[in-house]
Design a protein around this nucleic acid. Sequence first.
DNA 1: TTGAAAGCGCTAACAG
DNA 2: CTGTTAGCGCTTTCAA
Lengths: 356, 356
Amino acid sequence: MAPVSATVRDVARLAGVSPSTVSRALARPEMISAETRGRVLEAARALDWVPNRLARSLTRGSTENIAVVVPDIVNPFFPPLIRGGQQEAWRRGFSVLLGDSNEDAARELHVANELAAQVDGLLLMSSRLPAREILELRERCEVVVVNRVVRGVSGVVIDTAPSARRAVRHLVGAGHDAVHYVSGPADSWSNKQRVAAVQAACDASGTACHVLAPSVGAFERGRACVDDLLAAGATAVLAYDDITALGIVAGLADRDVRVPGDVAVIGCDDIPMAGQLGLATIGAPFDSVGAAAAGLLIEQIARRAGGAPRRSRLVRVPSTLFLRRTAGPAPAGGPALSGEGAAMPARSRRSPRARA
Amino acid sequence: MAPVSATVRDVARLAGVSPSTVSRALARPEMISAETRGRVLEAARALDWVPNRLARSLTRGSTENIAVVVPDIVNPFFPPLIRGGQQEAWRRGFSVLLGDSNEDAARELHVANELAAQVDGLLLMSSRLPAREILELRERCEVVVVNRVVRGVSGVVIDTAPSARRAVRHLVGAGHDAVHYVSGPADSWSNKQRVAAVQAACDASGTACHVLAPSVGAFERGRACVDDLLAAGATAVLAYDDITALGIVAGLADRDVRVPGDVAVIGCDDIPMAGQLGLATIGAPFDSVGAAAAGLLIEQIARRAGGAPRRSRLVRVPSTLFLRRTAGPAPAGGPALSGEGAAMPARSRRSPRARA
DNA sequence: TTGAAAGCGCTAACAG
DNA sequence: CTGTTAGCGCTTTCAA
């Protein structure tokens, strides 16, 4: 583990001072005469010494570590979030522990508890935990949630509602008279948010809104619901996430239903491949979201260490609607297609029509 | 940070024993009478006590933490690897720190050094570091490399050569008389491996092999080289990775070149979307690779802790060729299409022919 | 401005 | 089997 490095004592001896002085030379330079400090620093360099983080943590009572807990690191939604958080944490001198809950609330609790014991703060992304558990975790360390709102706990959320409204408006403008929303996991907070956003948007547009029941899998969920969608006569589909949307697109293609010719599909998350495949979607600057969350968490840790009272903040990050190929053409006079969706060539673009 | 929990002393007092007995009750149960141990465990539960990892690490000299360093967590190649490693580590009671080098060797060194100070072992995935640096890191903690071979350092590699041979054989059998390999990052070890594997495979088949120069980006790299490929009259392309391959496919489509009608494309990695999009590719069980690497690392840590001498092992994990849509049809009498590539419907499948 | 002393919470000899 | 003693390496009162 730790380098077989020198200790404070060694450095102190070499610099001809006491260990406390060495310690202070780094932690509170202003308490030490410039000259002494110079000697200490030189000795430290000579011995290639850096303070042992473990020992420091033990006495200081803080680790300079945070943990990031995600439901599934393989879900492309999370890596950008993690990277953003990671970079920000690193920038501020914190290291990052990683926890994967495998989409399971019980496991998430276990992981979070285990991790809480060795970090100053927890970043819970798309947590499936009941609010009560999250509040309990906060007794043990600072907590910031991402993609979730818990009263009294700081969080960063992506504000999808306005984009959902624009998406529905686009679809209605293009001639669709109903929107089908394909749900994500039953216990997903963001699924609830998205359902609500889509329903509200449909209400505002006076459009029928059908919500398909949650099911498991991501891509598979999408493919599996295609028969239901077709049976219901769906022509405009909003999906819980991009993977689900891609599953829908694939399932439709299997049945020779053209996208967007026959059915328009819009996903959510703007995962990298979405742009490449011309999938319309609602996206957000995920790196920034992750970074904002980590920043919030670390500020909270600092405030807490400074003895200040807790104060929870909710940061809303705006989302963007990318109207790409699968959303179908904009209605005449409507908004132009936007987003860098030209990665895959646009195929036939006609208005929605009944399937043969 | 750490829970404001009780300490060994508290538990010892409540159980009416000494702190050492408490410590032993958990670490060396067999040294303690069943009865005493029962009392200790009960007291611990009553006080909701778990040993403080920091303190334990400080005395034991080991952290029960490992670090995983990747070039870019957003690259879909890595999440499965990380997840596999994570799960295995967790299974063995280790937590995982995460480092992202941002594809930059200097940064990787910095990150690895920082991390080495707080873990028992380092898992370097697709490391861009010179062998010398890696050996130096190993002076500070155990190291296992993934997707890389360094003399004297344990590693797990994916053996792509046999699949590359099969791929070339398939292409040659389908009538292609040359193979174009699109390189990945210049400093990538696995790119070197893949170039070598493809060249060897072509030599074995008596086929011409053209290697396009490395360039940056992933998807973009693929799209950008399409003009060169077409100018060179390429009909069979092997790409460094799936993202690059998808870029090539997109670029070809932009120019109305059909895949696999006009050009066959095979990627590498079998990222989840590959199967979904019908992209032929060379894949491997990445979760297992990650798990194997973590297992190897932790075993090494244990061996080292037990005072045993170092012993480096190289694990080769076999790869699989998934002949999907983009590879074109199998030659008559050749191998059938394999892999779960039916996610996207197969399109026209003809033998390669000259472009208009 | 500096040093001496005490201790963070735990574990590991070494006795008994 | 169990207790006593002595730290792990660092920080931090408290005095000087």
